[in-house]
Design a protein around this nucleic acid. Structure first.
Lengths: 334, 334
DNA sequence: CTGTTAGCGCTTTCAA
DNA sequence: TTGAAAGCGCTAACAG
């Protein structure tokens, strides 16, 4: 039905091998033949069948990107970074959704393996990583982004979460060292744990007592942020400053405050709470109650992940050890 | 290197054909043989090579999803809807980014065609659709979502944009029929044009004059929304009510107002402007100055698109005409 | 520089 | 119910 290499060969009066060579930019081909073939390709409207090529070469020139959610600017900005880096490499990205479930994640990985992707970039959906080993068995290189997992070792791109949280806390403490609350995600996830450690360290260093009632752990979603903020504000004496370890929880917390009639900082300084949070997103500037965020270099994270992966795939310099790239965060004031 | 069907066949003491039959749930296979094969599959850790299968069957069981941006909750929620619908069909989704460029879009379509996807769902990046015809040539069914394009006909899933805008305007007008501003995107895009028409119709019907100075057209991004709002507010007599035809422009407009010290509706009604906008997103409730949005059923749009596409792919009932599904919008007050 | 040819791993007639 | 064998469309020795 579709035009095959054979049709082009016949039209150009050459062999299929020659057409294939033209298609693959083989240098040792006569300029004249090349022209002839190119003309035939154009006239027939021939398009490569990548499935056939992949079967032969056992390379698909595709990379899988597995994120816990699609509707998530943080993950998708990282994906965009990956794409940017891949753009000129001839590789294309297959974006998949693990739906925040280890089980779904496992199924997706199987699928990507069956599709014979050349490599995979994963934003882990939990701290469980044992099922990633299927990739190792199949010799498919993987790079983790944002967090590490148990029972699986590979290249990874992370940010300095501890340092980021610490710096933000330092900023808050310098303004006013009263009580500090913390809203965060599951501490079994490496990134959240590190941010919590940064929070604690800053308090310790400044001799500020840590009040357990002020520590609220949820699940890094808007709804959870809302709930955690509610619990915090419903205390007899809520903390004046709150560090939120994740953008979406920050959004949820803001929703709570807004919908309960709290006045934001707009214009006055009588706001009931003062928030600093991890992640600087497009909407961060319009989140009231907050003028400080810890910005992660999302695109760079994606680019780095792609770079590490392409190096593994090309396999030029047999890399033995697992490489962990730690990127710096930036404080952003609004 | 990897285990092939042949290895399994040898282990089980049957032919490759038999293994293949087991793999494909062929009913006419002896229960005993099946058990034997399954055991061998399990013991060898065999995994299907989908590339080889696809070459043979010329079906990849993959669907391409092409959106102008990845970092866009609107597009990604639609993608999520597509995934939801596809979940139990054995098809998987390849999410691609056209980067809001017709040219990139064309390249992506080529790529998807080369990857031999079984169908494509497209959110067009512009009103140009002529390059989509390559899909028709290759007999790859396509479904458009969100907007129509010139020079290409296919199934499509849209919302009733005109009606949505009209309803929102009606709501605003009922509260106070003074001056109305409009901030929107490129009117060559069918969705924005329809929303503009709804805006105009509502004014006409209520005998409210349309002031050309109050009509601002940008490019449906945050920055543009900011700029358009700036232009509106810098007029000697800015309109009191503004309809914004897109969520991201609404965000930008809000950014402008917030960063220029305008007090939002929180608590008082002295806000300088009153905004209604298209799209109801998670953050819509915390956008000040606004208590009304037109909600598009994003997930349903995705599901419908997937449904239409799968019908085309299965090709059971040779559908002749192009089907346009128009979904209703909902007014949401915050 | 170009052609011949042997598969890549799978499915699917056809024959047994 | 199972096996033998012929390809799907492409690439890569190898030979010329």
């Amino acid at each position: 039905m579709a035009i095959r290499i054979k049709d082009v060969a016949e039209k150009a009066g050459v062999s299929t091998a020659t057409v294939s060579r033209v298609l693959n930019n083989d240098p040792k081909i006569a300029e004249k033949t090349k022209k002839k073939v190119l003309k035939a390709i154009h006239e027939t409207g021939y398009r490569m069948n990548n499935v056939a090529r992949s079967l032969k070469t056992s390379r698909t020139r595709t990379i899988g990107f597995l994120a816990p959610e699609l509707v998530n600017d943080f993950f998708m900005t990282i994906a965009q970074g990956v794409e940017d880096e891949l753009k000129d490499s001839g590789y294309s990205l297959i974006v998949c959704n693990s739906n925040e479930s280890s089980h779904e994640e496992e199924k997706r990985i199987e699928l990507l393996a069956e599709m014979c992707v050349d490599g995979v970039i994963i934003i882990p959906s939990s701290s469980r990583g044992e099922h990633y080993n299927r990739l190792k068995n199949m010799n498919i290189p993987a790079v983790l982004v944002d967090r590490l997992v148990d029972d699986f070792e590979s290249d990874a791109v992370l940010v300095d979460n501890l340092q980021g949280a610490y710096k933000a806390m330092e900023y808050l403490i310098n303004k006013d060292n009263s009580e500090f609350g913390f809203i965060g995600g599951d501490l079994s996830l490496s990134n959240f744990r590190e941010r919590y450690e940064g929070f604690c360290l800053a308090l310790e260093y400044n001799n500020i007592p840590k009040n357990p009632d002020y520590i609220k752990l949820g699940d890094c979603h808007i709804e959870s942020g809302y709930k955690m903020m509610e619990e915090l504000m419903n205390q007899p004496h809520p903390p004046a400053h709150i560090f939120i370890a994740n953008y979406f929880m920050h959004v949820g917390a803001t929703k709570y405050l807004t919908s309960h009639g709290y006045a934001s900082k707009a214009g006055n300084q009588t706001a009931p709470v003062h928030i600093a949070s991890f992640d600087d997103m497009t909407l961060s500037p319009i989140l009231g109650f907050s003028d400080l965020t810890v910005s992660q270099p999302m695109k760079v994270m994606g680019r780095e992940a792609a770079r590490l992966l392409l190096e593994r795939i090309s396999g030029e310099n047999e890399i033995e050890e697992n490489r962990i790239v730690r990127l710096e965060t930036n404080l952003v004031t609004h």
